[in-house]
Amino acid sequence: MSYYDYGAGSRNGRWRYILAVFVFIVFLVMGGLLASNYRNVGNLVKVVSLVRTQYLYPVSSTQLMDGAIKGLVNSLSDPYSVYLDPKTFSHLQEQIRGSFGGLGILVGVKEQYLTVVRAYQGTPAAREGIREGDVIARIDDRDAKGIDLDTAINLMRGPVGSKVNLGINRQGVPEQLQFTLTREEISVPTVEGRALEGNSIEHIVISQFTERTADEIKEVLAKVKTEKIKGIILDLRDNPGGELNSAVEVAKNFIPKGPIVYIDNRVGREQVYESEGKTIQLPFVVLINGGSASAAEILAGAVKDTGAGVLVGTKTFGKGIVQTVFRLDGGAGLKLTTARYLTPAKNDIHEKGIQPDILVQSQDDRLHDVQLDKAVEILKEKIAIAG
């Protein structure tokens, strides 16, 4: 169904029609709840009428409909369930595919502040000098404090060649730094590997899980097999998650035959994702921290419960619920919490997190990566024992 914004001309008759359609939709959506909530439905209709007739500025029917849908979803008090307008939904799809028009930075929310987790080499953000740990205070004319990630991504991404202004607060710099960046086509690898300790240990960083991640990990592991690597460090620190299927496919390279994760929905129907046991036959350590969330915790939880590797670092974020993305008419979408996941031992980690096997706090000065150092130490011991 299409909705139109009518002018002041013959507004009354047309507006009554739109209002009737709106009420009809409410009746369909609310169903059996109407009997006990008829007063609220009446108030809703009255508020819509008052906004259309008394509000200082004109408001389109589309704007009211979008607001009603957003309000319905927001009433769930679930930060992970979100109504996505067409532009935001398009950006989410780009993120899942792993290619988009943007700046080349990975961001997270830390104490209500949008914080740069990483600026990828060769991208506009890296070339202009944006660094890990920078706090994004403004995006164009929008205050970024308290902003949610979906909105932030929506603001920073856009057509290739367009510009965006960022106000950056940097530790040790008293004044706010101003950057004007030109968006480019960004295809950021989600998996990067580098050799350590005389090429005996491979340090593999997975920054997020997209449709490309499973293929990228296979490429890195294929290289590992040809270079006589003796141990692997799988780095999931500050990995915010991503696609469930992607995390499962990555896990199959490391988790022995059996369950990787259980998915449990509201009616108790359980789905299990399993590994066939075709794993890389090398000792490995997994690095985790408070920024390891969602799909990253699926992999970490499977490693912990099966004992396949050793978890090093700090407790993970604790997001043990699954969102399904639904396509709506007009290019919009709905990201809705539809299930929870359980680890192979059927532990529910939501709002609890996963504890590491070996607790190692990171240092604030970041001069030394003590967590990585510990992982290397553990692997060297395992390699020595294996001979």
Results as ranks from 00 to 15, higher is better:
residue 371 Q to Y: 00
residue 194 R to I: 01
residue 211 E to V: 06
residue 125 A to I: 06
residue 383 I to P: 08
residue 31 G to P: 09
residue 101 G to T: 11
residue 276 E to P: 01
residue 344 P to K: 09
residue 341 Y to K: 05
residue 340 R to I: 12
residue 321 I to W: 02
residue 68 A to R: 03
residue 353 G to D: 07
residue 96 I to T: 13
residue 175 E to S: 09
residue 199 N to I: 01
residue 84 L to G: 08
residue 331 G to S: 05
residue 53 T to Y: 08
residue 257 K to H: 08
residue 77 S to G: 02
residue 215 D to L: 12
residue 56 L to H: 13
residue 233 I to R: 07
residue 385 I to E: 15
residue 186 I to H: 03
residue 195 A to G: 00
residue 154 N to V: 00
residue 22 F to T: 13
residue 108 G to D: 14
residue 208 Q to D: 14
residue 332 A to L: 04
residue 382 K to V: 12
residue 309 G to E: 07
residue 65 M to I: 15
residue 261 V to C: 06
residue 10 S to Y: 09
residue 290 G to Q: 10
residue 35 A to F: 08
residue 234 L to V: 13
residue 60 S to T: 15
residue 310 V to S: 01
residue 25 I to V: 15
residue 307 G to F: 06
residue 196 L to I: 01
residue 62 T to D: 14
residue 180 T to E: 13
residue 222 A to W: 04
residue 352 K to L: 13
residue 200 S to T: 15
residue 258 G to S: 07
residue 311 L to I: 05
residue 278 K to C: 00
residue 17 Y to D: 13
residue 112 Q to N: 15
residue 8 A to T: 11
residue 101 G to E: 11
residue 59 V to H: 09
residue 274 E to R: 14
residue 149 L to V: 12
residue 345 A to S: 15
residue 201 I to G: 01
residue 373 D to R: 08
residue 282 L to R: 12
residue 71 G to F: 10
residue 378 I to C: 10
residue 331 G to M: 04
residue 237 R to M: 12
residue 109 V to N: 15
residue 150 D to V: 06
residue 156 M to C: 06
residue 280 I to F: 09
residue 74 N to S: 12
residue 356 P to V: 08
residue 212 R to E: 13
residue 232 I to T: 06
residue 132 E to N: 09
residue 152 A to Q: 04
residue 347 N to Y: 05
residue 151 T to A: 07
residue 301 G to K: 04
residue 56 L to P: 00
residue 195 A to V: 06
residue 127 R to M: 11
residue 241 G to T: 10
